[in-house]
Simulated assay, not measured.
Amino acid sequence: MNRKMKKLCNSSDGMNCYTSSPLKFAFGEGLNVYMLQVSYDLRSKCADLSELLRSFTLQFHFILITAFFYGKNIVECKQIWERLQWKIKRVGIAKMEQITDYKLLLDTAVLAGQIMLRNGAEIYRVEDTIHRILKVSSLKTTEAYVTTTGMIVTLDDPQIDSLTVIRRIADRETNLNKITLVNTISRRFCAGEITLKEAFHDLKHLESREYSQRVLDISTIIVASAFALLLGGTAMDALGAAIDGALLVLVLKLGIKIGFNPFFKDVAASAVIAVGAILLSRIPFAVMNMDMIIIGTIMPLVPGAAITNAIRDTLQGDYVAGGAKALEAFVKAVAIVIGVAFGMLIMGGVKA
């Protein structure tokens, strides 16, 4: 027993390293339980984990009992307190938060799902994220049915009235950065690192952590130019693709302002790309390949992520979502083809 106690006393995992007898060891374990119980009682009065750890009442209980029993001075007691703070953080006292605002929890889960679905996440990933957030409530029924264009989320239990939210998703794009940010927030919430209110606040203000529209526009121009080079074009072809990419950005902005639906917006953008490429290829003093310019500039429009998600959803067994994603990718590809063909017809066809 004595060897075992000495081994425990040599650890640095908390306050038990200060015990030197079975009686003190037992008291130390009891004090651990007592401190956690005090933290439970104070939890309802404290807004978050940092406030709990700064609570004067909790520190007073700990320092007073430790100083009385172990005969330590105040400095040593504060050192023990700092170790206990680390221990409380490690076990995750934020998990002790009792979820009572089920409406806010449901809104948080639905908001996370909306952001992910609007930005090109797979259907199974959206449903999994919603389920994980709702499971924190420990209620009996948590259901999420997600399609490409909407979702139905339900939270139910014999103790509460059933809560159901239906959301329609009209606009969709591809933004993997937003999906990553939502995943990070949901994981931190489920791990107890942040509270429900903090998670909802972070999701609501996700735009502040995004790239600015100017950066996105410049990136579109660079992508068009880079693809022209990657596919075998010359430096002049890359320059032409960059100019055509700038026209693409302007058309997309105009389409959003006017309120075009996605199909006609892609048709208009592709037509302008074709017209711009033909005009650039006809400049006498600049040798530019029209094909390279068109191919490089339409790459930001190509539905590569939609095709990938369609395959992944299908492999996950969600055939409805996989089929819908595949159809969406097909319609987008058709819009690009129609737009390019229409632009060439406007310019009188391709001249050798």
Rank of each mutant, 00 (worst) to 15 (best):
K7E: 13
S11I: 10
S11E: 14
C17F: 08
S21H: 08
P22L: 13
G30F: 06
N32Y: 01
V33M: 05
V38A: 11
Y40G: 00
D41L: 06
K45V: 07
L49E: 06
E51H: 10
L52K: 11
R54H: 14
S55P: 00
F56D: 12
F60K: 15
L64T: 14
L64M: 08
A67H: 04
G71L: 07
N73Q: 09
R83W: 03
W86N: 12
I88N: 03
V91I: 15
V91C: 03
A94T: 09
K95P: 05
M96L: 15
Y102W: 03
L104Y: 08
L105V: 04
L105A: 15
L106E: 00
T108K: 10
V110T: 15
A112W: 01
A112E: 09
R125N: 00
V126Q: 04
I130M: 00
K135V: 02
S137A: 15
T141Y: 08
G150I: 08
D157L: 04
D157V: 01
D157P: 02
I160E: 06
I160D: 09
D161R: 13
L163C: 09
T164L: 01
T164R: 11
V165R: 15
I166D: 02
I169H: 00
V182I: 15
I185T: 14
R187A: 07
L196E: 03
K197N: 11
E198A: 09
D202N: 11
D202V: 04
S212G: 11
V215L: 15
L216W: 04
D217M: 07
V223L: 05
S225W: 01
F227N: 01
D237A: 08
A241H: 05
A241G: 05
A242K: 02
V249G: 09
V275M: 11
G276Y: 12
A277P: 05
L279Q: 13
A286G: 00
M288V: 15
D291G: 09
M292L: 09
T297N: 06
M299D: 02
L301I: 02
I311T: 11
R312M: 10
L315C: 03
L315S: 02
Q316A: 14
V331A: 14
K332W: 01
A335K: 09
I338N: 06
G339K: 01
G339I: 00
V340C: 14
A341L: 10
A341H: 07
G349F: 03
A352S: 13
